[in-house]
Amino acid sequence: MSDDLQLPKTPFSRPLAAVDVPEDGLERSIAAEAKERAALAEADGLPALNRLEAKLLVTREGRDGLRVTGELSADVRQTCVVTLEDFDTRVVEPIDVSFAPEASPAAPPHERRQELRQERMSRRRREAAPEEPKDPKEARASRHIADLDDDAPDPLVDGRIDLGAIVAEFFALALDPYPRKPGARFAPPGEAAAEEEERPPAKASPFARLRDALDKDGGN
């Protein structure tokens, strides 16, 4: 293996040699162990990662290339950016990534590939929700990134891929950078004060009125 082209380091590692992938593909189910989950939680800034599993299909693609498809699922604990309370949630994310025997001159390096995948996931989230029309320049940039993301495979380093590293990367990219506990709503200080002013005064308790009447009678 060359010094300038190495498999990305990750606490969750499940290496697989390309020669071990048969012509009809290979199915693999992997799960992170307790120590691996703790290390990933620390790396991703999570209070806890209670489960991380993935079902994957590795197939041959092109000339000596590989493709990994499947889905990961995880039970995570995150901190709400509104209430600062920890809450549990589930993350489910599809996986689809291709590998070529060696990086071509036009193919972006691993770090750039991570940026492109992040942009792809962000783009998918935006497309899933109503949004305003895009600026033409932004639309052209998104199409350019999509073209790069579709055309440039990751490098097949030393004839191997790391299924654990793939799952860990897609998991990190799938995490909401601004997690909110269900029902949590951020209200600016001005809005919160206005809501407090508009709130109708609390009704007096009948027992309180009776107590006031008795106090007055006692005073006479």
Rank of each mutant, 00 (worst) to 15 (best):
V97R: 06
S29N: 15
A194P: 11
G45H: 04
P182V: 04
E27W: 11
R143E: 15
P206E: 00
L5A: 08
D215P: 09
V19T: 15
K35D: 10
E191R: 08
T89F: 02
K203V: 09
R77A: 11
S205C: 01
Q118K: 10
P8L: 01
D217R: 10
A172P: 07
D86C: 03
D215C: 01
A194R: 15
D75I: 11
A39N: 03
L116E: 07
S73M: 13
P206H: 00
R125N: 07
Q78A: 03
R180N: 01
L26N: 05
R185D: 14
P188R: 00
G164H: 03
D154H: 06
A17Y: 06
E33H: 12
K137G: 11
E119W: 14
A128V: 13
L49N: 06
E127V: 07
Q78C: 03
M1A: 11
A48Y: 08
D217F: 11
R63Q: 08
A204M: 13
K203M: 08
L56C: 05
P206V: 02
Q114D: 10
S29R: 14
I95Q: 03
A141C: 04
R90Q: 07
S122R: 10
V19C: 06
R90N: 06
D86I: 04
A129S: 13
R124V: 15
F12K: 03
V91M: 05
E85R: 07
R90T: 11
A192T: 09
A184G: 03
F12I: 15
E198F: 15
V21P: 05
D64L: 04
P130M: 02
K55G: 12
L175Y: 01
F186W: 14
V76F: 05
P11K: 01
L210E: 05
L210Q: 04
V157H: 02
P153G: 01
L156Q: 13
R185L: 14
P177F: 00
Q118L: 09
A34H: 12
V91Q: 07
A152E: 11
P109Y: 06
E169I: 03
R199M: 13
A141P: 06
R117Q: 07
G159M: 06
D44K: 06
Q114G: 15
T79S: 12
D147P: 02
P105Y: 02
R113F: 00
R140I: 14
L66E: 02
T10V: 06
A139E: 11
A168W: 05
V19P: 02
R140S: 09
